[in-house]
Nucleic acid binder design. Sequence first.
DNA 1: AGCACGCCGACT
DNA 2: GTCGGCGTGCTC
Length: 828
Amino acid sequence: MLEFADIQHTDRETLFVEVILPLAISKNYTYRVPFSLNDSVFIGKRVVVQFGKSKLYTAIIAAVGNQAPEKYEAKYLLDILDDRPVVTGRQLRFWQWLADYYLCNMGEVMNAALPSALKLASETKIELNKDFQVDKSTLHDKEFLITEALEIQNELTVGDIVKLLGQKTVMPILKSMFEKNIINISEEVSERYKPRKRTFLTLNPIYNDPDNLRELFPILEKRAPKQADALLAYIKLARTQKTISKNELIEESGAGDASIRSLIEKEILVAEEKNVSRLYFDEDEFSDNFQLSDTQEQVLNDIKQQFSEKDVVLLHGVTSSGKTQLYIRLIEDMINSGKQVLYLLPEIALTTHIIERLRQYFGGNIGVYHSRFNDNERVEVWQKVLNHEYKVILGARSSVFLPFADLGLIIVDEEHETSYKQFDPAPRYNARDAAIYLGNMYQGKVLLGSATPSFESYYNARTHKYGFAELAERFGGVELPKTEVVSITEELKKKTMQSHFTSVLMDDIKTALANKEQVILFQNRRGYAPLMMCKVCAYTPKCVNCDVSLTFHKSSGKLHCHYCGYKEEAPSICPACGSTHLEYKGFGTEKVEDELSMLLPGARIARMDLDTTRSRNSLQNILNDLEEKKIDILVGTQMVAKGLDFSDVTVIGIINADSLLKYPDYHANERSFQMLAQVSGRAGRRGKQGKVVIQTYDPNHRVIRQVIENDYKDLYFTEMEERKSFKYPPFYRIINLDVKHKSQDILYNQAEYLATELRKNFGDRVIGPEYPLISRIRNYYIKSIMLKFERDVESINRAKAIIKDVITQFQTTKLSKGAIIQADVDPV
DNA sequence: AGCACGCCGACT
DNA sequence: GTCGGCGTGCTC
């Protein structure tokens, strides 16, 4: 802490800083800089400030000035945490853009951007005042309890005391105890980042002389064979890597810690303790160069060519076309020109072999960043990006926030993935879109890659806003899967259906099983049956919160709401008329699994949907089982489509394509279509051509017809061909708004009000709030409004201004403190 | 986000 | 009467 005298008795200029606090508040706050820190204030450094009554926060300096605020007395800055800024000016501009674009506060962006180890918040610590003896008999019960606890524990946090007393409001008690001098209350901030230490071993230089080494071995082998083993292992390791840690040696040699310690005592090995990175990297040189196929080579040149004119290029490459190899070439080019590369992947893909594959190529140059890393690891990556130690970052969506110095290229793989969008806490950003802006800030290039590009990106490519490149064949000449459309109606007529399975699909499944190959069946509904209905009075159980019918789950025996999670016991008699004739309509994955196991008793069937993957490791377990061929048939929802590499799946069955293709809403239809294409892309690997069986009641559906007419080529590919000529409606940009409030009535008014305001400007482009249903999550009712535009930036900005205005109105009217929780726009 | 203040109902 | 609930407003 600084002394009062320090401030008063210097005659230098008084500085003020504006800081970003890691809170959901709309303004930056101004603090006065003590003279002692005048030389060290700098934009982007972290500082400690007191905000509110007692809390200390880590804030980021956003601006420095010398103008004293007029309306209030600024508090002093308490401390500066960094010698050098941890956040660059460019990052701060990126944060500002993100906050504006996604309608949130800078503090919220800061929370998402900084690894939490860099944001220390204070812990309120309570201790006994040792200079003061209390007469315990004068204390109230609660005060007595706290005093007793402190005598044993020395130090408690506010949280501890809440638990101790079993009541929520403890501050008044603490306050009075502080005033009575019984306790001390202190706020402490502590650095949470701790470097990791490791012992490294080197051979005593004497033994670099082979003669000395040769003398040593027989002695060791006789007296201490374990030590000899260890030494041998060391020499073996030293051939392939520069540094050898103690742990590695123990693992390699099978010798114990003791043997290695005696080697150190005998001065054969030299131990040295070093701060070590928590991040794995090996020093292996890049593996032998692979060869690009002619097609790949062409496409690579095509992309480079387009980068000379366009900042963003969309690469549409069918599954297994070798996109990653193109990425590697582009990354190599960037590294050679000294620039950094950001390689974005959806969360789920980061668990796979991609990381390993890239590490092989780029060794210590590559950093991996995602949310499963612990905080210390994340800070290390952050620092290494800041210090230019990493040239390539492989990461999930949050890696767009890393402090790049010179970003030359961003690759967004699986560009269409919805997991690039953050939903729950603000900022509700889409990393793909943010990456495009980021690329622009650094004057770098952005490559969007996907086997099933999102429709927005595809549109942008088609209108020449983005460049476009195509990889239309699979790498290594593997054939694309053959697609067969089967009419359920026909098979019903011929009476060849078995439960939900056509004879065609059944035969294919049986053939696959006979060949020890695997099958994936896709049914985009979980549960057993999505609807229960009384045969007599047509009563359907509905969710008490949301306006949807409840889905029957056989595993729980309950009716579930898929919107809000509400559950109730499935009735055995109709609650409306008392009839016992209740029937289940439609079917979900549970039922498919159920019926299939009756038809194919020998097959090992597993199910993959939200219900079976809810617990931590279950998804991984299912994938492992599939990999190890412990599963013959996997029944699943859209989850089975998500970029997973299944080894021996040769047959994909779409149980009912109509459920995907008949949404009333154009956008939902697009998404379903994409899903269909993604699922189909999973068929056939490792030299085997796959087969996709699409079951439908409606073989005349546009999409289905197209599959047939296009000679069973890759489904998505043909659809995209179709779209080139814009036979189908133009693409919309959408603003999605979710309004939430605890009271249903107020929510309704708010949603109506917002919609009315927007309608004044945009008329019938505003959809809702009647469109989707009110849903209820925890204590909040949520209602969605949608705004559709033909692509027109000016309208979007106007709409955003109106939305911002309404948000402020909501915040300032006492009537309703509901918030617009989401406002999401396509990239501009 | 915290935390205080103020208003209300329900308990020793 | 006060304890504790919750809504509202403020924090440089």
